[in-house]
Structures are given as structure tokens and as C-alpha cells.
Design a protein around this nucleic acid. Structure first.
Lengths: 153, 153
DNA sequence: TTATTACATTGGAATGGTTCTCACTTACTA
DNA sequence: TAGTAAGTGAGAACCATTCCAATGTAATAA
């Protein structure tokens, strides 16, 4: 269950984006803000089974798609066949394990500059009017390196 | 139909990767090498209907998945529900139109450095053993800017 | 060249994530 | 507080992708 602070924050986020405040949206957003586990729709449904026992999958999909449209949330694919979601409160990107699918958030000082420069170059070269980007890095997570008995190249 | 030069090149690529050379694989790879249209499985099937009239969808999926495993090809999602494929002969990334789904290849001098630096930072921070990355930039393509009557922000 | 064998291809069925439909409910506005 | 535009829920529908079993074929070696 999300804290009062998170509930207030997410309430404000919904209002700022002029989204109608329903219990479903509020609780789902609060869950995403307070968890960094890159859940699927099923993960969310299970996690919220106490608070929203009768929620339909359609509602979760609708809600997440709305959040994505409003750039509150990003979609991620890790190769397991279903879409994962991540609240995008502050700029970061993702490292995805090619063996187990684990997703971790990554950022570093200067990352925004890298992003900005990539977008500017792209606009210049392609003529696109840029609205966003996705960066992903693939590799073996530390646990899988051990599991597979790999230490170096 | 792909040129002789392309057929020779792709034959060598398959051999270099120790992939069994079948007509299906050879023709599909040649198609990808000589087109930069980021096709879906259906696009490929239609385009090759003369050369491979009886090819099954499974074969195209199998072939493309094999190529992806060998890092010959990358997968792309543009939001239309199906996966697009792109031969990855030289380092580049993609700009994807959020309105019509158009995908264009982009690169610039210094892009490899950006890539390399992103991967190094990621390895350092996350502990992942990096094997690759995907970068994508989203926005409105020039045609959609006109179509939607947009000139500036 | 031929036999062998492991791998690829087919085509149809199965899978499963996501979207659609529609009746019902609810959050916002005046 | 009533009117209404929008959101929700249950299940059906959709469709891209994978699975499966039978058949075909590319590579290897004698």
C-alpha cells in the first residue's frame, strides 16, 4: 500500500494532466510511483488484488495506455512476450538482461546531455520534430554472469 | 530481386555465421540487405511471393529470429502491433514517427562514441556485461508535420 | 557420388497478450 | 444535485507469434 505522501503526489499528477481521478487510476499510479519493479499488467493485477479485487484487465491496459500517452509511464519489452511498464519520474534508461530479462534503471551525471545531443542531431539529420527517446542497453546481469560461470570475455 | 553482388555478399554472411544456407534464408537476408524499409513478416512474405511462393510464416519468423540471435538483424516496434526488422550492417539508430509509424535510419560522425560511452557507463554502474544497445528517437516525421499543420512548437 | 543425419521448412493448430464491445457506473461541471 | 461525458468490468474477439509433427534438404564424410 502506498504512503499518504505518494497518494497526495499522484493525485496532483493526475490533476495536473487533467485526467479524471478514479480509484483505479489513482491506485495504479501510486503503485508505479512507489515500486521500481517494471511490472506487467498481470503483476499489477496481482499486487493490487487487495485494493482492487474486481478490476478488469481492460481497465489496467486502458489506464497504462493513458499514462503512456501522457508520458507518465514508458513501455518496455524484455523478450518475455509481455509489456512491462515503468513510471518515468526522472530521466533514466534501462539495462535489460538477455538471459533472465531483469530490468534495472540506470542514469549518471551527464546523461541528460547525451540525450539532448542525440535528439538535436536526430532533428537536424532527419527533419523529425522530436518528442522523446528510448535508450536500452543489453547484457548479462551480475547474477546471470555468475550463474553461467562467466567472468570475462 | 537482389543483385548478384548482394547474393554473393549474403551467402558469405551466412557462411561466416555458420548458418545452414537454405534458399529461404539466403533470399530473406538478401531482401533485408538491399531494402531499408523496415519490413514486417507480412511485408517480406508479400515482397518475396514471386521467389518463394510457398514459404510459411513460421519459416520467416524462424529465419528472422535466427538472424536476430546472430545480431545480423534488429527488431523494431513502431506501435502498429507487429514487429519490424532491419538489417544491421553498420551502426545506426532509428527515428520513429509517433503519428504514422514511419521509421528512418539515422547516424552521424561520433555516434559510435556516444554508443560506446553509454555502454561503458552502463557497465560501470549496473555491473552488467554489455552486449549491445538500442536507441530510438520519437517525433513527427516531416510529412506528418505538414499533414497536421504544424510548423513550430 | 551417395548415404547419413541433423537441421530447416510447412501448414495448421494452439497460445496468449492486447483490444474491442457494450451495459453499467461514476467523476466532473454548472 | 442533475446531467453527461467518460471510465469500468466481463467476456468475446483479434491477431501476431509460437508450437508441433511430418516432410524435405543442406552439409559431411566415406
Amino acid at each position: 500500500m502506498a504512503s499518504n505522501a505518494v497518494m497526495e503526489e499522484t493525485l496532483q499528477v493526475l490533476k495536473d494532466h487533467k485526467l479524471r481521478v478514479t480509484p483505479q487510476r489513482h491506485i495504479i499510479l501510486a503503485y508505479l510511483v512507489s515500486h521500481h519493479n517494471h511490472p506487467t499488467v498481470e503483476t499489477i493485477r496481482d499486487a493490487l488484488s487487495k485494493e482492487l479485487p474486481n478490476i478488469g484487465s481492460s481497465t489496467i491496459y486502458n489506464t497504462l495506455n493513458t499514462f503512456v500517452d501522457h508520458h507518465l509511464v514508458v513501455e518496455l519489452q524484455n523478450g518475455d512476450g509481455s509489456t512491462h511498464y515503468d513510471y518515468f519520474g526522472s530521466p533514466h534508461y534501462h539495462a535489460i538482461c538477455t538471459n533472465c530479462g531483469r530490468i534495472v534503471d540506470v542514469t549518471y551525471p551527464g546523461f541528460s546531455d547525451t540525450e539532448k545531443s542525440l535528439e538535436e542531431k536526430t532533428a537536424e539529420i532527419s527533419g523529425y520534430m522530436i518528442s522523446g527517446n528510448h535508450m536500452e542497453v543489453y547484457g548479462l546481469c551480475p547474477e546471470c554472469q555468475i550463474k553461467l560461470g562467466i567472468k570475462n570475455d
